[in-house]
Simulated assay, not measured.
Amino acid sequence: MEEKDVTGIEEEKEEQLDDASIESEVIEQEEVPSNTADEIEKQKEEMNKLQKEKEELYQKFLRTQAEFDNFKKRSIKEREAAAKYKAQDLAIELLPAIDNFERALQVEVDESNKGLLEGISMVYRQLIDALKSQGLKEIEAVGKEFDPNIHQAVIQVEDESMESNVVVEELQKGYLIKDRVIRPAMVKVNK
């Protein structure tokens, strides 16, 4: 009988412990949802806030990346243009000297100036060859149709033997470097 009493008491204690643990679980479950619901709501708000911030930073990153790519492309184009037209400033400075060489070469040749004119002619050819190697070209004018992009009309004449709007005479040579006009040709144009 004593064994039954001890066993019964143990069973009663276990039942009381089970009831107490069930009660504490119920209490915890009731308290957890109310605290957890507030915390979950706060966490959702924080998560939404962080998501928005992340999206804003990502968009800012994309804009910065696009600006950098555009800058890189622009820099490459500027370097290519600088390399392509590197001789332009020098050619512009030398054009008056070339004009003077051409005027000097138009002098009548006689025995007293023959050697001097040959020397001037050699220097002139070397100068022109050096500039041509850098992309300098003369603008063809006489007999061509007037183009305001490459010609500068100084005088208009009436010549019935020529078509209208055609260059009659070149007063000063024009030059291009690659495809850029560095000095338009000064011309007489037929009406």
Rank of each mutant, 00 (worst) to 15 (best):
residue 102 E to G: 02
residue 102 E to S: 08
residue 104 A to H: 03
residue 104 A to C: 14
residue 104 A to K: 10
residue 105 L to R: 02
residue 106 Q to F: 05
residue 106 Q to C: 07
residue 106 Q to V: 04
residue 107 V to E: 12
residue 107 V to R: 06
residue 107 V to S: 05
residue 108 E to N: 14
residue 109 V to Y: 01
residue 110 D to L: 05
residue 112 S to R: 06
residue 113 N to P: 00
residue 114 K to S: 11
residue 114 K to R: 15
residue 115 G to C: 01
residue 115 G to T: 15
residue 116 L to R: 09
residue 116 L to Y: 12
residue 118 E to S: 09
residue 118 E to M: 08
residue 119 G to L: 02
residue 120 I to D: 00
residue 121 S to Y: 01
residue 121 S to Q: 14
residue 121 S to C: 01
residue 122 M to R: 10
residue 122 M to W: 02
residue 122 M to A: 10
residue 123 V to A: 15
residue 123 V to C: 09
residue 123 V to R: 05
residue 123 V to F: 10
residue 124 Y to S: 06
residue 124 Y to T: 09
residue 124 Y to A: 11
residue 124 Y to V: 00
residue 124 Y to P: 04
residue 125 R to W: 05
residue 125 R to G: 04
residue 125 R to D: 09
residue 126 Q to M: 10
residue 126 Q to P: 01
residue 127 L to Y: 05
residue 130 A to P: 02
residue 130 A to C: 01
residue 130 A to H: 03
residue 131 L to I: 13
residue 131 L to G: 12
residue 132 K to C: 04
residue 133 S to E: 15
residue 133 S to T: 15
residue 133 S to F: 02
residue 134 Q to E: 15
residue 134 Q to N: 08
residue 134 Q to S: 14
residue 135 G to L: 07
residue 135 G to P: 06
residue 135 G to R: 00
residue 136 L to F: 07
residue 137 K to T: 13
residue 137 K to G: 03
residue 138 E to K: 06
residue 138 E to P: 06
residue 139 I to N: 01
residue 140 E to R: 04
residue 141 A to D: 05
residue 141 A to K: 06
residue 142 V to C: 01
residue 143 G to R: 03
residue 144 K to Q: 13
residue 144 K to V: 12
residue 145 E to D: 11
residue 145 E to Q: 12
residue 146 F to G: 00
residue 148 P to R: 15
residue 148 P to T: 08
residue 149 N to A: 08
residue 149 N to T: 12
residue 149 N to W: 03
residue 150 I to D: 00
residue 150 I to E: 03
residue 152 Q to N: 15
residue 152 Q to V: 08
residue 153 A to K: 14
residue 153 A to C: 07
residue 153 A to Y: 07
residue 155 I to A: 03
residue 155 I to E: 12
residue 155 I to T: 15
residue 156 Q to N: 12
residue 157 V to A: 14
residue 157 V to C: 10
residue 159 D to F: 05
residue 160 E to W: 02
residue 162 M to A: 06
residue 163 E to D: 15
residue 163 E to M: 06
residue 165 N to W: 04
residue 165 N to Y: 11
residue 166 V to A: 10
residue 166 V to S: 03
residue 166 V to Q: 02
residue 167 V to W: 01
residue 167 V to Y: 11
residue 169 E to Q: 14
residue 170 E to R: 14
residue 170 E to T: 15
residue 170 E to C: 10
residue 171 L to G: 07
residue 171 L to P: 00
residue 172 Q to H: 02
residue 172 Q to F: 05
residue 173 K to S: 13
residue 173 K to C: 06
residue 173 K to T: 07
residue 174 G to K: 06
residue 174 G to M: 05
residue 174 G to Q: 05
residue 174 G to R: 13
residue 175 Y to A: 02
residue 175 Y to H: 02
residue 176 L to F: 13
residue 176 L to Q: 03
residue 176 L to K: 05
residue 177 I to N: 00
residue 177 I to V: 08
residue 177 I to E: 00
residue 178 K to F: 02
residue 178 K to V: 09
residue 178 K to A: 12
residue 178 K to W: 10
residue 179 D to L: 09
residue 179 D to Y: 03
residue 181 V to A: 07
residue 181 V to D: 00
residue 182 I to V: 13
residue 183 R to P: 07
residue 185 A to T: 04
residue 185 A to W: 04
residue 186 M to Q: 15
residue 186 M to F: 10
